[in-house]
């Protein structure tokens, strides 16, 4: 897909995301909107190997969602990539659904790991990368993480493993939106200077505008060239990106839009 079509696709994902969350009446809105461009690039920009008709294809790259709560955008991306029918999106968080409130590997085709308790996906991603590297297989492992998630100490244990074993098949993407449930990340905790921290952990560090399709794709291509070190992309995104009244507002972390809000959002996105 060319850049123009990718941008269009990202808007489609946002539209389905709003519809899905409004229907569910529960779920996270802000983070998924902010990550819509990156998910579009990963699933439709030709950056990642997968086969929707054969989700367990051995040669696939692994996309590991460590901050499981933003799974609505993962589900929308997987549905658009034909891992399962789009109709399933309307069942999010309902009893008996294949789309759990936090992703479950055994329920949803394309979900690589069950996650929701923060800081765990990155360890699993490091394990997958270690396995591929030991077997000299070319598969890449892409791990998506929240910035607030980095407050979990075990993340940094995983980063040490990644550099100890020179996992240059691991690309970590940090959703750097500076917001978490209780407010600004630097008020809640103390994450900066993230560049220096990752450099000190022997990572290749890349920064980009995570809501700029071209810039993200170029950065990802650079980050995925193996050079003996794991890579991290600190992707500056905005929570709620695409919907003006949600943008950069942490109150949209964990709630869905109501009917009125959804209509407003869809109007802005061109979905009505």
């Amino acid at each position: 897909m060319d850049i123009q079509n990718l941008k269009h696709k990202a808007t489609e994902l946002r539209i389905d995301l709003i519809k899905m969350l409004e229907k569910a009446g529960s779920g996270h809105t802000g983070g998924p909107l902010g990550m819509a461009d990156i998910f579009t690039a990963l699933y439709f920009g030709g950056l990642v190997k997968y086969d929707a008709k054969n989700p367990k294809w051995e040669e696939r790259d692994r996309i590991v969602l460590s901050n499981g709560h933003i799974c609505p955008i993962l589900y929308v991306a997987l549905a658009h990539a034909d891992f399962f029918p789009k109709e399933a999106l309307s069942t999010l968080r309902q009893l008996g659904t294949m789309l759990q409130g936090h992703p479950h590997r055994l329920d949803t085709p394309g979900v690589e790991i069950s996650s929701g308790s923060l800081g765990q996906g990155i360890s699993a991603a490091a394990g997958m990368a270690l396995g591929f590297k030991s077997d000299k297989k070319p598969n890449k492992v892409i791990c998506l993480m929240g910035d607030g998630e980095l407050e979990e100490g075990s993340c940094w244990e995983a980063f040490m493993t990644a550099s100890r074993y020179k996992l240059d098949n691991l690309i970590v993407i940090v959703d750097r939106n500076y917001l978490q449930i209780d407010g600004h990340t630097e008020d809640v905790s103390c994450l900066e200077d993230l560049d220096k921290r990752f450099e000190a952990f022997q990572f290749n560090v890349f920064r980009c505008d995570g809501n700029n399709m071209e810039e993200f794709i170029k950065t990802f291509e650079k980050a995925s060239k193996p050079n003996g070190k794991p890579s991290v992309i600190l992707a500056r995104t905005f929570m709620g990106q695409g919907v003006s009244f949600m943008k950069d507002d942490h109150s949209w972390h964990g709630k869905p839009p109501n009917k009125q809000e959804a209509e407003l959002a869809l109007k802005e996105l061109g979905g009505i």
Binding site: R62, A124, G127, L130, G131, N139, A158, T161
Partner: peptide, 12 residues
């Protein structure tokens, strides 16, 4: 982390 890495290894 060791438990998580082991789980990742089992996934491959």
């Amino acid at each position: 982390n060791m438990v998580g890495v082991a789980c990742g290894l089992s996934m491959v």
